[in-house]
């Protein structure tokens, strides 16, 4: 407990001690942060390209009733039923949005808003109705906290301790995501860019849409413990969006996203330690700050470059006219 809102920055406390005194937990928390951000960021690049950012937001909200129902039915917090509940919720969300759009003149944006808020409300009601039996906390689902993930369960393989169960699980999911994206890279690219072209090439765009949705649900449900459902959206969008300000090539965007994810994990952790705040919140704040910096300073498209360009614009315009004429 402290008195001031903004604690004094102590290099010792915020930067050194976590690594010198609590290395074992720190390394796993930072790794977990990186894994969550990287996995979300990877899939997020495609979400951004498909203009599904807010569908991702909707799915992340709708998971609440999905996992609650799964919990109520199986009465366990095992991963598998939760996963199934989450996937079902994700599919229902997308299908409902589509259903409203098709059967009425409601625009997609309003449909998204209606569906996710209703499903989320159902989730909250279910949780409060079974508050005594449900070991789920709506607020925990909402914020999540990497600091709370259980580090005691260690996975031991061939006599070597590899790491805590949740971190390994996230890593596996991240690797699967990477593998799937590499396998279906060209199909995803084509369906994201031009669904009509994809259909004419014999690639069913609807199937990839649903596949991506399914996988998005899996990623979100495996991340929600760490960052909470709402901040998942930050991890989905920020890495890709920041990278897109720097480069146009998709492979580079994916690499850059991974790099940014590492930064979020590391800097977010230290920020949260310094401020004594939620790590997920810290990661998002770091993501926001990095985005703002890139937005202003990006070498080709940054605000600064544009501003400088503007003052020379007349000359540049003449030359560009000449090149076009020539």
């Amino acid at each position: 407990m402290r008195d001031q809102f903004l604690p004094a920055f102590s290099f010792q406390n915020a930067i050194i001690e976590p690594w010198s005194l609590y290395f074992d937990s720190t390394i796993w928390i930072v790794t977990m942060g990186f894994l969550v951000a990287a996995t979300c960021g990877l899939i997020g690049c495609f979400i951004i390209l498909r203009r599904m950012a807010l569908v991702g937001d909707a799915i992340s909200h709708s998971l609440l009733p999905g996992i609650t129902l799964a919990f109520l039915l199986t009465n366990s917090r095992d991963t598998l039923p939760m996963m199934i509940g989450a996937i079902a919720a994700g599919v229902v969300t997308v299908a409902l949005i589509e259903a409203i759009r098709q059967s009425s003149r409601i625009k997609p944006d309003a449909a998204i808003g209606i569906v996710f808020s209703s499903l989320f409300a159902i989730g909250v009601v279910l949780i409060s109705a079974y508050a005594d039996t449900v070991d789920l906390d709506a607020e925990c689902v909402l914020y999540g906290e990497i600091g709370w993930i259980p580090l005691e369960d260690r996975i031991v393989l061939g006599g070597h301790e590899i790491g805590p169960l949740p971190v390994i699980r996230m890593a596996v999911i991240g690797l699967i995501a990477l593998g799937l994206l590499l396998t279906f890279y060209k199909e995803l690219l084509v369906t994201s860019f031009d669904a009509g072209l994809a259909a004419s090439l014999g690639i069913n765009p609807g199937r990839y849409q649903y596949g991506l949705t399914l996988f998005l649900s899996v990623v979100i449900v495996s991340s929600f413990e760490s960052v909470g459902v709402i901040l998942v959206i930050a991890m989905l969008i920020f890495p890709g969006a920041t990278s897109m300000l720097l480069t146009d090539r998709l492979p580079r965007i994916l690499w850059l996203s991974a790099g940014f994810s590492g930064l979020y994990g590391l800097l977010g952790f230290h920020l949260a330690t310094w401020l004594d705040a939620s790590i997920a919140g810290g990661m998002t704040v770091v993501a926001g700050i990095i985005f703002t910096l890139v937005w202003i300073l990006a070498p080709k498209r940054g605000l600064l470059v544009k501003f400088v360009f503007k003052s020379h614009s007349k000359g540049a315009r003449t030359s560009s006219i000449e090149t076009q004429a020539g």
């Binding site: 807010l54 937001d57 998002t284 993501a287």
Partner: peptide, 16 residues
């Protein structure tokens, strides 16, 4: 994307 970022970024700041 812009809305998603503002939504999540501000919310993250708020939660912090």
């Amino acid at each position: 994307s812009a809305m998603g970022m503002v939504l999540a970024g501000f919310y993250g700041l708020g939660i912090t």
